[in-house]
Amino acid sequence: MPDDDRIKPTEKELKARRNRSIAIALALAAFVIIVYLGSLMKLGPSLFDRAM
């Protein structure tokens, strides 16, 4: 398929996509940290209390 048949994103669309991608990355990172710290707090020392 020739290149000119494809939809070419505009500068504005690419900028908006980059903005959304950064926001999703930050939200996912925050979610991972929240779940990690929350699990530590909820389970406490028993998190590491298991038979070797």
């Binding site: 048949d5 939809i7 994103p9 669309e13 690419l14 908006a16 996509r17 903005n19 959304r20 950064i22």
Partner: peptide, 15 residues
């Protein structure tokens, strides 16, 4: 071969 209007376009929505 071509799509009309905004179909298939990237969104301009920001965070």
């Amino acid at each position: 071969k071509h799509v009309d209007g905004d179909v298939g376009r990237l969104s301009e929505a920001t965070a």
